[in-house]
């Protein structure tokens, strides 16, 4: 399971859906694996806009991988509010390219890194979802359904 998966998951317990504490789920005892894939800078650039940066930062911090992520989403630098922006600002945004170094780090974090064993824990109800051989189990026991 790629680390990026956690950006798209939340607690399966119904009563947790409305709690901001249920996202992102928190890694515990995570065992990571590097599986290098071909670097595709365009793909990384294209998925940036759909990432929840604050959740991603939480995940990186928990895994001791804070250095892999810039402090804000580089895609934000590329966007200029068209109503308030001057010509100069728009041009600057257009010329703004995300450095190869940043994209490579993001590639390593998002694409190459997977979690193979461990748990994902809900910050609201505390339920622990086990991850075994890279597959997270989100089936709930009867009393939580």
């Amino acid at each position: 399971m790629k680390l990026l998966t956690v950006n798209f998951l939340t607690c399966a317990v119904k009563t947790c859906k409305t709690s901001s504490e249920s996202y992102p789920l928190h890694f515990r005892d995570a065992q990571l694996e590097q599986n290098p894939q071909t670097f595709n800078p365009l793909f990384i650039r294209n998925i940036l806009s759909r990432l929840d940066w604050s959740a991603l930062t939480t995940t990186a911090n928990e895994l001791g991988l804070t250095a892999m992520l810039p402090d804000h989403n580089p895609a934000d630098d590329m966007m200029v509010d068209s109503e308030g922006a001057t010509e100069e600002e728009k041009n600057r945004a257009k010329d703004n390219v995300i450095s190869e170094e940043v994209l490579k780090k993001l590639h390593t974090f998002l694409v190459d890194t997977a979690v193979i064993e461990g748990k994902l824990v809900c910050g609201n109800c505390g339920f622990e979802y086990p991850i075994k051989e890279g597959v997270g189990n989100f089936l709930l026991p009867p009393h939580l359904v």
């Binding site: 399971m1 790629k2 990026l4 998966t5 950006n7 798209f8 998951l9 939340t10 607690c11 399966a12 996202y23 793909f43 998925i47 998002l110 694409v111 997977a114 979802y129 890279g134 597959v135 997270g136 189990n137 989100f138 089936l139 709930l140 359904v145």
Partner: peptide, 15 residues
């Protein structure tokens, strides 16, 4: 990028 597979009841754990 295939993120992986998870065990679950339909989409109950998806954002």
């Amino acid at each position: 990028l295939y993120l992986g597979s998870i065990t679950g009841d339909l989409c109950s754990s998806l954002l």
